[in-house]
Design a protein around this nucleic acid. Structure first.
Lengths: 202, 202
DNA sequence: CAATGTTTGGACTCATGCGTCCAGTTTTGA
DNA sequence: TCAAAACTGGACGCATGAGTCCAAACATTG
């Protein structure tokens, strides 16, 4: 299981990606490879050995993040009372999307949107799109079960997601301090779920 | 009233700003001044004569846009039936925020957020913040008038704005075609207003 | 220690783009 | 027609950063 003679060390690639994330988040897409290498305590050449180019590095970074973001994206559990399930889903979305770290990533995608549109699209599919789809699916099931009345689950899912994420995302992306702490997350999740149930209750 | 001998021509500044908008929207903040000058049919030097630097140019551009965006931001009119007023406000928000042109601007602000945070903040205040504030004010009035029940107008305003804008904004910023035409705007505005009234109706 | 392969760091080329400078030209009001 | 000012366009200096190259140092295993 140990690697071959003088073989590459996977942990070092991770270190490079970590450094890239930190630097790119702070300085934007124009940050230099040299700076990233310095932060990773690695020579510039090593970065090029492992990731072919700057674009390759960013690509790998986004790939890793996409995996990271998709994993915990559970659909709401139909077993619970719908309002509870919705509040839980809201909490998850806020935890995933409304943190400074996630905002930094979104900034990155937006910057990349111009000259690397595939990356932006990949994120959009993995993050926002997937979460909406799962939410819509849940709503459709609740509708069938007669616990809610949702004729257009896709639109309803957009509404709920917008209620929860809406403002915070914009502010964070623009680097404005939106002051959202744990209590705020709780308050918004609960209230959004409650209002949504009023709007779509059986 | 006519300008002095060989004096600067205001229209030319406008032409430069127009060109800057088009080029920056298409290529991002890294687009060159030369390209902008070419597009404006003006020499590079002239750009520097009027706007001190690239940062100055972007600043002026954002200033103009902020004025442009703030002007039509009417608060909903309390006289109408609240659902009608809300639908109208939603239409206005979508027209203002969910167009490719506006998306290009937001992309610009996000890119600027790292190294020109004041610009991003100025936009946030003039656009999202102001519209939310006016909406919250309207909701508070409806509450006082007994036509709705809105204990927390600020949060309710965020909810409504999020429902309306939410998903489209994200997609547009990422350069994903969200396929929102006039009929879509109408459908979303009407439905969002209807659901919101169910959630906050008297 | 030998063989294999990686890492390092520093030098290098190349491209791009900001901002400046300037000599000659055009515009405009008087 | 004249003078003041702005405009042009092209050259220029300077900085930054991508990506390459290489010889010396290092790690790993048999």
């Amino acid at each position: 299981m140990s690697r071959a003679v003088g073989q590459i060390d996977h942990a070092k690639s991770e270190a490079i990606l970590d450094a890239a994330m930190e630097i790119l988040a702070a300085r934007g897409l124009t940050a230099s490879i040299e700076e990233i290498a310095r932060q990773a305590r690695v020579s510039k050449q090593t970065v090029y050995n492992r990731f072919r180019s700057k674009a390759g590095l960013v690509e790998a970074l986004v790939e890793r993040r996409v995996a990271e973001i998709t994993a915990p994206l559970e659909a709401p559990r139909a077993a619970e009372h719908p309002e509870e399930a919705l509040a839980g889903f809201a909490r998850m979305m806020l935890d995933a999307a409304a943190t400074p770290r996630s905002a930094a990533f979104v900034r990155l995608y937006v910057q990349a949107a111009t000259d690397m549109p595939d990356l932006a699209r990949a994120y959009f599919e993995a993050g926002p799109r997937t979460s909406r789809r799962r939410l819509a699916q849940f709503l459709a099931e609740e509708h069938r079960a007669g616990r809610m009345v949702v004729e257009d689950p896709a639109m309803a899912a957009e509404f709920f997601a917008g209620m929860v994420i809406g403002s915070y995302q914009t502010g964070l992306m623009l680097g404005v301090d939106v002051g959202l702490d744990a209590a705020g997350v709780e308050r918004i999740s609960a209230e959004a779920a409650r209002r949504f149930m009023k709007a779509y209750g059986a």
